[in-house]
Computed example of a mutant assay.
Amino acid sequence: MQVLENLLHSKGYVYYTREDPATNVVEEVFFCHPKSYTYWRTFPHVMMIDATYKMNMYRIPFVQIVGVTSTHHTFCIAHAFITKEREENYLWVIQKLKEMLDKCMEPRVIITDRDLALMNACKQVFPDASRCLCRWHISENISKHCKASFSNSDWNIFRHMWTTLCESSSEDIYQYNYNKLYEQLTKDKR
């Protein structure tokens, strides 16, 4: 842990740690690159947050927080290692994220997967932000639960129509694409 803290400090990262009060063992680490700190304060409008735990050797949740610039480019805002994917752990991470804004505008939109602990923590810290589900996670869920009931050609037609719906450029076009998809699914008795 000492090596990580020395590295974060020497490279000028904004970082916080949280220890277990009974054992003084570090349980959470939050860190943000200096350039990411500037980007976050400049472009706080949209925030995407997700955690994974299968990709690191310690099998502990790694939280990645991503923002979007005014030119629709993404950038990493911050990262955190947490002990558990619980509301209390996410709450600490998101509070640190908010502290970094230091009276700047807060996010208007927060995109997550359907992790209820994460969604509740976001709601507590940023109550006025719209909360949306990640399109990739929705599409993965649709594939997981529906693909087996389609033939290959029908699945390809459905995926094309779903993608067209998701990429609708206006509310009217969305409604049109939604109706087309609904009609197709109804016609196929799905």
Rank of each mutant, 00 (worst) to 15 (best):
A78G: 06
H72F: 11
Y182N: 13
R86A: 04
I157R: 11
V29N: 01
Y176L: 14
C146G: 09
Q175E: 10
K96G: 04
Y174G: 07
Q95R: 14
N56L: 07
L165C: 12
R18G: 01
F150R: 03
C132H: 10
S70H: 14
N152S: 15
H160W: 06
F43C: 05
F30D: 02
L185F: 03
M48I: 10
R159E: 12
W155Q: 09
F75N: 03
M161F: 05
E140L: 12
M47D: 03
T163H: 09
Y13V: 05
W155C: 08
I94M: 11
Q64R: 12
M161D: 02
N24P: 00
L133F: 14
I77C: 11
Y182Q: 12
T164R: 13
S36T: 08
K98V: 03
W136E: 09
D20N: 15
R18M: 11
L8E: 02
D172K: 14
C146P: 01
S143N: 13
I77W: 00
R41F: 10
S70W: 07
S153G: 00
S36Y: 06
E140I: 03
L133M: 13
P34G: 05
D20C: 15
V93Q: 00
L181N: 10
N156I: 12
Y174P: 04
E88I: 13
R135M: 14
